[in-house]
Structure formats: structure tokens, C-alpha cells
Design a protein around this nucleic acid. Structure first.
Lengths: 126, 126
DNA sequence: ATTATAGGAAACCAATTGGTTTCACGTCAA
DNA sequence: TTGACGTGAAACCAATTGGTTTCCTATAAT
């Protein structure tokens, strides 16, 4: 439900750092466009377009008040992201487990759980 | 550590549906490029470029084996995403709480779900 | 009534993106 | 050695993106 199957999905919406910043800013509460754009080095119009993209993705809600349009965070679509991420939990768990096994291994070295070269931090040879 | 300070960040990397699909595919294990590209309607070269972007973001690792290059998932950078997401947990919690309060609200109506209006912050000068 | 303010719409632009086709190179097989 | 296979690099292209400026319309405020 909620669907928000709009033309902008949440993945694409949060891909831009300005938009991620906007989400954070709008978490504090409702703000009109001009106030928002004051936080950014770009034009008000540019910010407005970012806001529209966020709104299309359902991440932000707009509300007209007099002559202003106030925006605020709607975190609901982030749940989709969370769901997507949760699929990968098992992988880090595996990795963590492998790492742990490696660290705790009583070095008979007979069954290296996984190559995992990420473990070693060579002193900077370069 | 890890840092993956590369030119492609994880947010941008997962913005593309093909790349998300690749991650899922590569979760099953190492695969060479041709085998991978067989799953997609686009050219091998196109898939290869997606793989490079994923690799730049640290989401995928490559390993040369004879004349093939095999790719596999590296979920580690997703932790950054998880961390980013976790910042917003409190918001859905609030929302959930508000919703719950609303649903459970019996008759007094004195506590509307969540006005959520915040006052305006300092006008950012001009 | 007139003027100033808030914000969206439109037209435009450069850079990036997602894709293609062609080519070159290293590796495996005959 | 000759040729086929697996892949990346390069050059190219259309569409999208992130931004701008200019204009237009509502809504205050005087």
C-alpha cells in the first residue's frame, strides 16, 4: 500500500547528496521553500526541483499555507529501503561470522573459512 | 578503513535497478561476466560497466581466473546505507507511535495523532 | 489599489548516464 | 601456430540530470 509507485523511486531519490541533506533538514519540521533553499548554495528553483523529486518518491509531503508551500519529511518510503537492505543482512552476518572465526581461529590454519583479504591492513608500503 | 572513497558511492550505485539485480545475482556466488550478462537483455559491455560501478562502490569484488573475470558480492558498503537509514528509525517510530495512538485513541480526541508542526527556524538572512 | 513576497513553470544548457558497436589483447584449445 | 573465447577500452549517441534564468500567478502587506 501507500504504493507511491510514482516515477521516482526511493533509491533514485536518495542517490543525490543534496536530497539526502534535504531529508535530514526536513526531519526537524515543516519548512517553506525559501527557508529551505537558504541552506544551499544553489538557486531556490533548483531546491524546489529536488523537493519535487522527493515528493514524487513520497519522502516528503507538501502543504500550502497562505502563499508558502511547506515541506516536511515523510519517512514511510524508507521502509522499502529497509526491507531491501534486510535481504543482505545474512551476508554481513556471514562475513562477520567468517571474520570472527578467523580472529578466534586457533591457527592450525587447516580450514581458512574464507579468503577475506580485507582483514589484513598492511603497513603503507606506498 | 575500507572507506571506499571511490568516485562512486553506494547510494548512487544502488540507484539503478539493473545494478540492484546484479547484487542479488552475485549473492549466490562468484560468476564470470559472460554468465552474468546472460541474465540481462543488454550487451555484455553494458553489464560490464555496471559491474565496474559496483566495484567502484566496493559492492562487488573481481578476481581474474584464467581469461575470465569473476565477480562476487561484497556487502560491506551496505553497512553505510544501514547506518544512514538508522538515523530515520526514530521517525518511523514516531509515526508508528502516532498511528498507534490514533488507532487506539478512545473518544477523548484531545490528543490528535501528531500535529508535527514545527515552528520556523531563523530566516536564513538574505 | 498597488506593490512586494513566495513559489512553480518553461526554456535552456552542460555534464552525466546507460546504452551501443567496434577493436585490441590475453588466454585457452586444436 | 592458429584460431576461438572472455573481457575491457574507446568512441560514440540519446536521454536524463542538476543546474540556471526568466517569467507568471497567487497571496500578503501598505
Amino acid at each position: 500500500m501507500a504504493s507511491a509507485s510514482a516515477k521516482h523511486d526511493v533509491f533514485q531519490a536518495i542517490a543525490d547528496p543534496t536530497r539526502r541533506s534535504l531529508l535530514k533538514l526536513l526531519g526537524d519540521g515543516e519548512l517553506p521553500v525559501t527557508a529551505i533553499s537558504g541552506h544551499y548554495p544553489m538557486s531556490r528553483t533548483a531546491v524546489s526541483k529536488h523537493l519535487r523529486i522527493l515528493a514524487d518518491a513520497g519522502l516528503v509531503r507538501e502543504r500550502k499555507v497562505g502563499r508558502e508551500t511547506r515541506y516536511r519529511l515523510d519517512p514511510e518510503p524508507l521502509l522499502e529501503l529497509k526491507r531491501w537492505l534486510s535481504y543482505y543482512e545474512r551476508y554481513w552476518e556471514n562475513k562477520m561470522a567468517a571474520l570472527k572465526r578467523f580472529v578466534e581461529s586457533d591457527e592450525d590454519g587447516s580450514a581458512p573459512p574464507a579468503p577475506l583479504e580485507l582483514v589484513r591492513k598492511e603497513p603503507p608500503g606506498e
